[in-house]
Simulated assay, not measured.
Amino acid sequence: MRKPTQLQLPFSSMSLRRIETEANYHRFYALELERDLFGQTLLARRWGRIGTCGKARFDQYPDEEAARAALAALVLAKQKRGYRDSMASFLGTQKTQRDACHDQPFEHAPIDEAREPTLPF
């Protein structure tokens, strides 16, 4: 069996989602490297339907490098199943909305001095 391509991940967390509205399929899959109270490296996996708490699993690894390799392998496996990086799509939609907001002039809200509370000092 061929070994999957190793991703170089400079980060310790990844958030994926898979949305297929025709099939009513709205899923998330979040991965994060954590440390427990004893200093052990854990790979926390959380998954489920978007809008719910979902389920969680914590796998212990001997070192951070092994946990990063497992994180990369899981990301590749989930991407093959149709999951995509949720931050990339989120930032893409936010960028267009943000650009539209920046075109409008900023107006300060008027301050009503009579309604402002007095400070105790």
Rank of each mutant, 00 (worst) to 15 (best):
48 G>N: 02
53 C>M: 10
4 P>F: 06
55 K>Y: 02
103 D>R: 15
22 E>H: 11
101 C>S: 11
49 R>V: 14
82 G>V: 07
112 D>E: 11
26 H>N: 10
78 K>Q: 14
106 F>N: 08
77 A>G: 05
22 E>L: 12
50 I>N: 03
45 R>S: 13
119 L>F: 11
95 K>F: 11
28 F>A: 04
26 H>M: 02
41 T>E: 10
88 A>C: 01
32 E>A: 15
114 A>D: 13
72 A>K: 05
20 E>S: 05
20 E>C: 05
50 I>S: 07
4 P>K: 07
93 T>H: 13
36 D>Q: 05
12 S>N: 14
5 T>Q: 13
7 L>C: 01
106 F>A: 13
32 E>L: 07
37 L>M: 09
58 F>C: 04
116 E>D: 06
116 E>H: 07
90 F>D: 06
109 A>S: 09
87 M>A: 12
67 A>S: 02
92 G>E: 15
27 R>A: 08
112 D>R: 10
63 D>F: 08
110 P>E: 08
64 E>L: 10
83 Y>N: 01
99 D>G: 03
92 G>K: 08
111 I>W: 02
94 Q>I: 00
49 R>P: 00
51 G>Y: 06
14 M>Y: 02
77 A>K: 14
55 K>Q: 13
26 H>K: 12
66 A>E: 12
32 E>I: 02
10 P>F: 04
83 Y>R: 01
21 T>C: 03
43 L>K: 01
117 P>K: 11
116 E>R: 15
76 L>S: 15
61 Y>N: 03
8 Q>L: 11
21 T>F: 06
111 I>G: 00
89 S>E: 15
68 R>N: 05
5 T>A: 14
78 K>F: 07
76 L>Q: 11
10 P>N: 14
33 L>V: 09
12 S>R: 10
1 M>F: 05
89 S>F: 07
16 L>K: 03
70 A>H: 04
94 Q>R: 10
69 A>I: 06
11 F>Q: 11
91 L>N: 15
117 P>E: 13
74 L>K: 05
110 P>K: 03
82 G>P: 04
110 P>H: 04
46 R>G: 03
73 A>G: 13
1 M>A: 13
53 C>D: 13
61 Y>R: 04
77 A>Q: 15
109 A>G: 02
91 L>S: 11
69 A>Y: 01
30 A>F: 04
81 R>E: 15
120 P>I: 04
111 I>L: 12
19 I>D: 13
96 T>E: 15
46 R>S: 12
65 E>K: 10
28 F>P: 01
